[in-house]
Structures are given as C-alpha cells and as structure tokens.
Design a protein around this nucleic acid. Structure first.
Lengths: 168, 168
DNA sequence: CAGATATGTTAGACTTGCTTAACAAATAAA
DNA sequence: TTTATTTGTTAAGCAAGTCTAACATATCTG
C-alpha cells in the first residue's frame, strides 16, 4: 500500500509525460524511439525516465513493449499540456510574439506557472477573445500601435490625467 | 586569454548571482552566510556556487573573505532582476495575482523568459500604466469585473458581433 | 591572550539526468 | 530460417547541485 506516487514531478518528468501523452494521442501507440526522437535525447535516457514514471504509477511499460499512460498519468499530462497551450495562446494571440519563440517560452514556463496564474491568464485570454470588438479588442489594437510606435492612439473615453509616454 | 566565461548560466547560478547582487545592494558587503540564508541552502552549496561563478568571472571571492561582484556579474544580475521585477509587476498589477504567489512565479519564470517576451511584456505594462484612464485602464477594470462575475460590462465602443461569454 | 562561538571550507556521498558502449530482443529480408 | 537491421536495455561514467560530517579560520568575549 506504499506506492511511490510522491505527486510532484520534476520539469523533466513532466516533459516526458507530456511527450508520451501527445504521441499516444497522435499515433495511437508509443515506443521508446518515438519519445527519444521527439525529446531529442538518447534511448537510454528514455528507458530511465520510463522507469521513474512507472514507479509513480503514471505509465505502464514492459521490457521491449509499448508505453501506456495510466489515467493518473493522463490527468497530469493534460495539466501540463493545458498550461502549455494557454501560455502559447497568450504569447502569440495577445502579445503577438513569433510562434517559434512563443513555443520555446511556453515549453519552459509550463512547468513553473502556479494554478492561480494559470486561472487568471486563462480568463484573460477568454476575456480578450470573446470581446465584442471582434478578433482583437480595440484596446489591444491600441497596444499593437503603442508597441510599434511608442505613441498612444487617441482615447475615446474620458481622460483624467495624461502621463508621459516616451519611447525607449 | 581563455577565460571561462561560457556565457550561459544555469537557473541555479542565475539565482545565486541575483541573490549576491541583491545582498550587495542591500547590505553593502556579502558573506557566504547571508547567501546561504537568503537562498535556503547550506553553506557548502554556496562555496561551490561561488567557485563556479568565480571561474566565469562574475564574482570575486577569496577564502574566508567577502564576496564581490564583477561588472560583468552586475550586468547579468541586473538582467535577471529586471526580468523578475517585470514579471512581478505584470502578475500583481495587471493580473491582480496575490503578491506571494506572484513572487514565486516570477522567481521561476525569470529564468526562462525570452528577450522577445520580456520586451513585449515590458511595453505592455508601460502601455497599461501610462494609460490616460488613470491607475487602471477601463478595459482592465472590465477584465477585473469579467474575472469576478464572468460577465462583460457593457461596451462603450462599437459592437460588431456578440459572442457567448459563459462562466465556467 | 586564550578559549568559545560563529563562520567558511573540504571531503565524500546521493540524486537527477544525460551520455556512450556493449549487449539483447524483435523485426525484416534474404 | 538464418542473417541483418532496428530497437531497447544495461552498465558505467560525467556534470550539476544538494547534503552531512569533519576540519579550519575568524571573531568575540572573558
């Protein structure tokens, strides 16, 4: 009754789990080779990782066999993937960051973001994307303009006090 | 002429350097003990880290002496600290995340954020904080409201199409 | 100044994660 | 079916970072 499900995964193990779940979804079956290719590590690293994840009850793996993900593994993988997707969306859609850069950032940040921040950002994205203004709310277009030119578009609403808005 | 300034620091070394620079700024002199307390590690870990940072030319440290930061070390530390501060500001001021949580997130994300994302977010914060609307632009207040209630405040500007905005 | 205390270093061990080299099993092809 | 190829595992070792235990230096205090 003392299973080694010490909950907390390292970033690396989260990466392996995420990759495995993604491969499962995409290809149906998952082999050591697939994981090693996707993650750009050698196969012995994968074997080692699988042994760790097995002990934690997140994957099933018999010698020379396919890799299966347990339901608990699924659950965790969905969490990581969810954080990744959300971050990617925030970076590309809202901040307008180049997809490649955004993907790299998302890959690293997905391991460190707290549930609170995840929730806030998720809502923030939703807030932006369901805006009646259309694709991109006016204020966000205002940011695009500000980012490019350093200047602020004329504000349509009340102006209480004007602060400096210099370019650096 | 072959100094070991292999540029890229690990997250951990970035943390040490950041802590050292912060202590220097705050207390004037930096001892191993201070670093070990601040970072919650034992002193031998600090000694080892200092040896690494010394080799890279980022700190100066003689046996049993104070720790000094080189100008290159300063420069790097400022970078890390800058990312930290920016992230903290974004999380607390814009997303309204509790300071403690925000600080934890910032501590981890400060190591993984790309220059591009740093720049975008920096501008985004500036865009928000120099908004003529006052402390917090109207659209951001709109987000606060949306976050709390799941409902969208009436939009003052043109409404092209209304999408669903459910709470989950 | 000399002992007690605080601080710093060294040595050795452990963990995580990676590698290469050698071996073992499974699959494909002759 | 026997060989060749691909795939997977084991073993051994390296690097970063942590720790504890033992030792060394500095500093404080009587």
């Amino acid at each position: 009754m003392k299973r080694n499900e010490s909950k907390k995964l390292t970033s690396n193990m989260e990466d392996y789990l995420e990759a495995i779940a993604a491969l499962k979804k995409k290809k149906g079956v998952v082999r050591v080779r697939d994981i090693s290719c996707l993650m750009d590590v050698k196969t012995p690293s994968v074997t080692a990782a699988l042994s760790t994840l097995s002990e934690k009850g997140l994957v099933l793996h018999e010698r020379y066999g396919y890799v299966e993900v347990t339901s608990e593994g699924e659950r965790l993988a969905r969490g990581v993937q969810g954080r990744h997707d959300m971050l990617l969306e925030f970076l590309t859609k809202i901040l307008n960051i180049a997809p490649k850069i955004a993907a790299e950032d998302a890959c690293k940040m997905e391991h460190s973001i707290s549930p609170q921040t995840f929730q806030k950002l998720t809502k923030f994205i939703k807030f932006v994307e369901t805006c009646p203004d259309g694709d991109r709310p006016d204020w966000l277009k205002g940011f695009d303009y500000y980012y490019k030119t350093g200047k602020r578009l004329k504000c349509k609403t009340r102006v209480t006090k004007q602060k400096n808005n210099t370019v650096d």
